[in-house]
């Protein structure tokens, strides 16, 4: 198992940040989601060995999170959210510098720096001073320094923040390649749900310090409910009330489309029957794909 934690508890004074978190992750790409204050940062801090849990235990890549923090940081790669670099360095020096700090011999670190810079698409600008880099280049550089010591597990914190659509697409393409073809596991913490959906097969959703949902994204979406989109004509109030009584969750979008989340054991024909009873015309009805956003909203209790 790459990440295995049991019953983690952690408090900042009186504020409980994590409460009974248990994870057993071995998938190649995992999304870590949660609203602000859900405990994502605390969990990452514990997994990287910066905080020791009040209760519970765990291992990252087989190293104990309480005893072998230094070994964990030697064998994982961490890509911070913030724009970070060292002025006065070029990309090769920068990347090899962090390779050395991870424990690589100097010559090897230099060689690897060239390789990973080529891989992330910075081969042409690798001798330029980092101060002259664009936001997109800095983001790729951060990814390069994360990869230089060939980690088995990457923690990526908001890897696409502040990128334009093209830059975002390129970084996601890289992350997807890393997780699917390079045998490196990736844990992505992000608020941009479509990014997670594009890259990860599995997701962990935290809310108020607890696991709100975890598992394979497609299964999580399927098992919980089915989603239908419809447009209606007529006085729909009573119709909607009846749908709610039937156990459906209704969401109205800005363009007057009603999203109906229905339990899998219910028959969608019930919707038409109710509409007929209430003399409501259904003018548009499609079975929709529920998005990760829907799942996230449901898991953290946001309607």
């Amino acid at each position: 198992m790459s990440i295995e934690v049991n019953d983690l508890h952690f408090s900042y004074g009186k504020v409980k940040a994590l409460s009974g978190v248990g994870l057993d992750l071995e998938e190649q790409a995992i999304g870590l989601l949660g609203p602000n204050g859900a405990g994502k940062s605390t969990l990452l801090r514990i997994l990287l060995g910066f905080l020791s849990p009040d209760e519970g235990e765990g291992k990252v890549l087989g190293y104990d999170i309480k005893e072998q923090q230094s070994l964990i940081r030697r064998h994982v790669g961490y890509m911070p959210e913030d724009d970070c670099f060292i002025p006065g360095m070029d990309a090769v020096t920068f990347t090899s510098y962090f390779g050395e700090l991870s424990g690589m011999p100097r010559q090897e670190a230099m060689k690897r720096a060239h390789e990973v810079l080529y891989y992330v698409g910075l081969e042409e600008g690798r001798y330029r001073l980092l101060e002259t880099y664009s936001v997109g280049m800095k983001q790729r550089l951060k990814l390069a320094q994360t990869l230089v010591h060939d980690p088995k597990l990457l923690f990526l914190d908001e890897p696409t923040s502040s990128l334009d659509p093209q830059g975002r697409k390129e970084i996601l393409e890289l992350i997807k390649d890393i997780s699917s073809k390079k045998d490196i596991q990736v844990l992505i913490s992000s608020h941009i749900l479509p990014d997670i959906e594009a890259v990860c097969s599995h997701v962990v959703i935290l809310n108020k310090g607890q696991i709100a949902a975890q598992g394979e994204i497609s299964k999580l979406k399927e098992l919980k409910y089915r989603l239908y989109e419809m447009k209606v004509k007529g006085e729909a109030q009573s119709f909607l009330e009846k749908l709610k009584k039937m156990g459906c969750r209704i969401e109205a979008t800005e363009d007057m489309i009603l999203k109906v989340y229905m339990r899998p054991n219910k028959n969608p024909q019930e919707i038409f029957r109710l509409a007929s009873e209430e003399r409501i015309q259904i003018r548009h009805f499609v079975k929709s794909q529920s998005t990760l956003e829907d799942l996230f909203a449901k898991a953290v209790g946001v309607d």
Partner: peptide
């Protein structure tokens, strides 16, 4: 940007404490 297949290979060495 295209992913450079040749640009990434696993490192054979061992990370050690200096």
């Amino acid at each position: 940007m295209t992913i450079k297949e040749k640009g990434y290979s696993h490192w054979e060495g061992e990370l050690a404490e200096k």
